[in-house]
Simulated assay, not measured.
Amino acid sequence: MSEFRMPSLGADMESGTLVEWNIRPGDRVERGQVVAVVETQKGAIDVEIWEAGTVERLVVEEGDKVPVGEVLALVRGEGEDAGREAPAARPTPEAPGTPDIAPPPARATPEAPAAGERLRISPAARKRAAELGLDPAGVSGSGAGGSITLDDIERVAEAGEPAPSARAAPTADAHAAMRQAIAAAMARSKREIPHYYLGHTLCVEPALAWLEAYNVERPVAERLIFPVLQLRAVALALRQVPELNGWYLDGKFHAARGVHLGVAIALRGGGLVAPALRDADRLSPDAMMSALRDLLTRARQDRLRSSELTAAGLTITNLGDLGVESMQGVIYPAQVALVGFGCIVERPWVRDGQVVAARCLHASLAADHRVTDGAIGARFLNQLTDYLQEPERLWPT
């Protein structure tokens, strides 16, 4: 019998509220299946399970606030007898994992909730209903146990029943809670991590020329944006300098098992999240653009998954669209590095002995001195620069 526990969805998380179960006792679950929705200070997160089996018992009820590490459910593995008790000892914590994700199985048609039962609706669905001015009590739910999902709300909206209204602003309490969570994580970072900082200004004329040539005959909706090239360059540079890709836990460095980049995303109501763009060193240009667009959309709709908040081995923050030319970031624990990009500006540049106008940007690295030193950080920035100045190497044919 295995124990499905409340995961840690960030260095600032101490507990979460179980707001929705997508499973019931007796259900079969597969690796990577979203089995619950947990509300944290940074929003509602779809939580996946990483052991296949049959749900023996749900230990926690919807609405309960649960500390990180506490048992949420018991799952019976293949060949195990029903009713067998789970081991009492808690497993030793491991480094954040990057398990292979299997698609969740198709849901069976659920039974409708009994009359008078408390309305069961996911946080994303509740938020979308409020935006549309729709009373969710009148919506038929297709989720587990008759719960109302985001797709149910969208289905009703497409039928033309509600009229869209202005987006509901987050409450002051919710915004304050997120700021407190961010403050706790950043205070811990500055208190525990001996940061060192490096920066480099590079000419991005070659990368911009490559991007313009790539986009010239493509429809506007299918064009790449420059941050895709930045993400790819960081991912390939991490292949060359893997010491910056991972986590510092229990007094030692744990290398990540893949190149999964945290992307800092500012939320509309304030605050930020940094979910992982997975396998950034393997994606084609179009696949990376699609994955980035999807991540941005779901982050702002409270539809992120737990694995996306734990897989990143390094985070990238880009403030260029806000006119910031350079930045010195704060590492997100337990990661060991953060890359920052400023805006593209025109500067004097020496080329072939001549001073010319060139488009440039500033790239910075904040890194953990317990794991690396300036020489390793400089090697990483040099690799990053090489990829952006020789963009044909980003996706060699």
Score class of each variant (00 low, 15 high):
I148S: 01
I148T: 00
T149Y: 04
T149S: 12
I153T: 01
E158G: 01
G160F: 02
G160V: 03
G160K: 00
A163T: 14
P164G: 02
P164D: 03
A166T: 11
R167S: 15
P170V: 13
T171M: 09
T171C: 08
A172V: 15
A174P: 08
A174D: 07
A176T: 12
A176K: 13
A177Y: 12
A177N: 10
A177S: 08
M178N: 06
M178S: 04
Q180H: 10
A181C: 01
A181Q: 05
A183Y: 13
A184D: 06
A185Q: 13
S189W: 02
K190P: 08
R191S: 15
I193S: 07
P194V: 06
L198E: 03
L198M: 05
C203L: 11
E205S: 11
P206C: 04
P206G: 01
A207S: 08
L208R: 09
W210K: 08
Y214Q: 11
E217R: 12
E217C: 09
P219H: 06
A221E: 14
E222I: 15
E222L: 14
E222K: 15
R223D: 06
R223M: 02
L224W: 06
F226I: 13
P227K: 04
P227L: 00
P227H: 03
V228Q: 08
L229D: 02
L231T: 11
R232V: 05
V234Y: 03
L236M: 03
A237L: 00
L238K: 02
L238E: 01
V241M: 04
E243M: 11
E243C: 08
L244M: 08
L244V: 13
W247E: 09
W247T: 15
L249D: 13
D250H: 13
G251E: 05
G251M: 07
G251L: 03
G251H: 05
G251F: 01
K252L: 12
K252E: 13
K252Y: 10
K252I: 12
F253L: 01
H254I: 04
H254A: 07
V259P: 04
V259D: 01
